[in-house]
């Protein structure tokens, strides 16, 4: 009767002398996997112009209605993006976002990408709205091909979701 109970005790004692599997979070950060879907970033082309052309496809694809895009016409002498328009306002409500990744699937220019940052806490609800300034990568971090090419980035070969508008 008690002989069997000792076996259970042995198992727990065995674990006592093992290294714990937990990670001491703020000091040690577990690296995320390549495909991890975290905080969004608005990318740029190699010459520093914005990839986003303000087409609002991401907003249409969003199941949670978290994205707000207000497009504006590019000034012909000083275009901010290669297309006719650019996003004057680009806001993502991080309280609504469910990180499904449909926006990056929908984006024709691969402007919006879910990157690896996952520490997204904030103190008040107003701070949950991430504006374009916060999302847009710095100018020197433009990457990819020269502006006019509109094709998929090799890194994320997912099928584009075509959305009926």
């Amino acid at each position: 009767m008690f002989g069997e109970l000792v076996k259970g005790l042995r198992t727990t004692l065995k674990y006592m002398f093992r290294q714990p599997v937990t990670v001491q979070y703020p000091e040690v950060k577990r690296p995320v996997r390549e495909r991890f879907r975290g905080r969004h970033e608005l990318k740029r082309f190699a010459d520093g112009s914005e990839r986003c052309i303000g087409c609002s496809l991401c907003a249409a694809a969003c199941p949670a209605d978290a994205i707000l895009v207000i497009p504006a016409e590019n000034e012909p002498d000083n275009p901010r993006s290669p297309g006719e328009r650019y996003a004057a306002t680009y806001e993502i409500n991080m309280l609504r976002c469910i990180f499904c990744g449909y926006c990056e699937d929908a984006c024709p220019t691969n402007a919006i990408v879910l990157e690896h940052q996952y520490e997204l806490s904030f103190y008040d609800r107003r701070a949950s709205i991430f504006t374009k300034e916060m999302l847009l990568v710095p100018e020197d971090q433009g990457h990819g091909e020269p502006p006019p090419v509109l094709k998929q980035i090799e890194r994320r070969p997912s099928p584009p979701a075509q959305i009926d508008l």
């Binding site: 996997r33 495909r35 991890f36 990180f99 070969p157 997912s158 099928p159």
Partner: peptide
């Protein structure tokens, strides 16, 4: 946790995978 890690590498999220699409899965296995 070990399985969730596999899910993360395949789909990009641990719990809310959203991995399946109509006609297949979103991406091939890494």
């Amino acid at each position: 946790e070990k399985i969730l890690d596999l899910f993360e590498s395949a789909s990009g999220a641990r719990l809310m995978c959203n991995y399946f699409r109509f006609g297949g899965v979103a991406r091939d296995l890494p």
